[in-house]
């Protein structure tokens, strides 16, 4: 009989504390003449270190050295454990020792402003682990019990901005999402078939293309997805193609391109063979106000793009 865990736990994230982190914490704490303050700086440094590791793990950029928590003058002036996350703002990583009786996180008044949120970081020195346990967006008291924190998913939600489906109508007004670039920008000149590279020659009103990354952790498998639009009365004619990406001459074989309904039902699909320079779906007409989905798949990896043909 398989063992099944009955208790549903909140998401946690543990970071090993390496010697370099202890070194930094020690170095910073020696800049303080009050023992209590020295301890505060020591633990704050470890907590921020763990926070920085976590944010970078999520593939976001931080400005650690520019954060107040990493500056001895600012450490002196405030009880701060901030970390600047680029494009988001400052997160505060507050430490609590695993052996402390109260399991209460202290969030001093001076950091109640200018923060996008607060993370509870439990530090276990005997195991050299710092565990991110919870998150709150705002605080109204200086002492918060760990179990009062929201799950870490809330922090992930904050850092995972909502993605809208691609707005095709706006394309006709020359408003494009940043990942959808001019076709010419993404395809090597010698590979471009002049027949569909320029607006004047091709039938399409416009073509935009996007780089599709099929394997985040293994390099090399990528493609360029292009969408060509031609408005036709109340309908939009759409041509979807896949081209090689980067410096590749051909598409990988067995690459599948599919048109799906929003619910995920496959309407049409094509597959690349050896040495294809392009594969395309039969052009289709879409009604304004409907949505559709394009799927690019290779082996067991698939990437989907949602479109809203308003």
């Amino acid at each position: 009989m398989t063992q099944v865990n009955q208790v549903i736990e909140k998401l946690k994230f543990s970071v090993a504390i390496p010697s370099e982190a202890y070194g930094m914490a020690e170095k910073f704490s020696r800049q303080q003449h009050h023992p209590q303050k020295a301890k505060q700086v020591y633990l704050n440094t470890l907590a921020v270190y763990a926070g920085n590791y976590f944010i970078e793990y999520l593939e976001l950029e931080t400005n650690l050295s520019g954060s107040d928590s990493w500056n001895p003058v600012m450490q002196t002036l405030m009880d701060t454990a901030d970390l600047e996350v680029k494009n988001f703002g400052k997160l505060e990583f507050r430490p609590v020792l695993v052996e402390s009786q109260s399991q209460v996180v202290h969030i001093p008044l001076e950091v109640w402003e200018d923060r996008i949120g607060y993370v509870a970081v439990q530090i276990d020195r005997s195991r050299s682990l710092a565990t991110l346990l919870g998150f709150v967006k705002t605080v109204v008291t200086e002492e918060i019990a760990i179990d009062q924190f929201q799950p870490l998913e809330d922090l992930l939600d904050l850092l995972n901005p909502v993605q809208q489906p691609v707005q095709l109508r706006q394309w006709l007004q020359n408003i494009f999402e940043p990942e959808w670039q001019a076709f010419e920008a993404l395809l090597k000149p010698e590979l471009r078939n002049p027949a569909y590279a320029t607006r004047k020659v091709s039938k399409e009103a416009l073509i935009r293309a996007k780089f599709i990354d099929l394997e985040m952790h293994l390099k090399g498998q990528a493609a360029t997805l292009s969408i060509g639009l031609t408005p036709d009365d109340k309908l939009m004619e759409i041509r979807v193609r896949l081209h090689p990406a980067l410096t590749a001459k051909y598409l990988p074989p067995n690459l599948k391109l599919a048109l799906l309904t929003q619910a995920g039902r496959v309407i049409r699909e094509v597959e690349s063979r050896n040495q294809n320079t392009c594969i395309q779906l039969e052009p289709f007409k879409y009604e304004m106000g409907r949505s559709f989905r394009i799927r690019v798949a290779l082996g067991d990896v698939s990437v989907m793009e949602d479109f809203f043909a308003v």
């Binding site: 704490s29 020696r30 303080q32 003449h33 023992p35 209590q36 020295a38 301890k39 020591y42 003058v73």
Partner: peptide, 21 residues
């Protein structure tokens, strides 16, 4: 425990906190 923290405090060239003060 407070006394033990004083390991961290050294009577050396002035530390940042003293300079700031």
């Amino acid at each position: 425990g407070e006394e033990l923290y004083s390991i961290l405090v050294k009577e050396e060239p002035p530390c940042s906190s003293m300079i700031v003060r």
